[in-house]
Amino acid sequence: MIEVKDLKKQFGQKVAVDNLSFSVKKGEVLGFLGPNGAGKSTTMRMVTGFLPVTAGEIEICGISMIGSPTEAKRKIGYLPESAPLYNDMTVRGFLRFCASMQGLKGAARATAVDEAIETCFLESVASQSIDTLSKGYRHRTCLAQSLLHNPEVLVLDEPTDGLDPNQKSEVRKLIKRLGEDRAILFSTHILEEVSAACTRAVIVDQGNIVADGTPDELEKQGGGSLSELFRKVTSQESPAA
């Protein structure tokens, strides 16, 4: 469902992503690991069509993100790293706006908004203005917008960042559940999340994939410890993001 081939991104002289290739199939949750500045967010921004690629090919459900970006974007739900929201709107108003932008109308839109609110446990704040929300609720509101159009592909950039341990656990369970009938690409630098939510993981460093496998395989490669493998395959001093 996500096919990335020889992806490259260059900002001036700096190569942020270098010949990256990977694929995520239906029912798979791919953890995208790497130190800060490894190129995770840049890759996700290219996969979701926000950043143009320097070279390479991205296909979402067989549709080229470079050739037909609008059609490809319809297949994706995206949670950006900073969970950006329109602060002057209420949670429900924001979700209604996002649903309309995804082409939903009338009863279908109302149902999608209600379901997203329920899935992300937002009932208690649905009528509240977004600028009054705590970080956890803000994150979940942004996650909810990514689920509205029931996308076949989910791209989640650090979905548990800034959440408390209970919320983290809830979101991991949610990702696992959503991944049963979707393809999910999610980035993190919290290694415990790999075994908690992923069916497969890749470790990225300086724009290249340096390890790829199931959580068990990766742990074996690291002599029983994923963090050991992480330290071994990633550079200690990563460039700034």
Partner: peptide
């Protein structure tokens, strides 16, 4: 400033 440009840029709109 708020990063919502990333939301707009990844929605199926021109």
């Amino acid at each position: 400033r708020t990063g919502t440009i990333e939301l707009l840029g990844t929605m199926p709109v021109s």
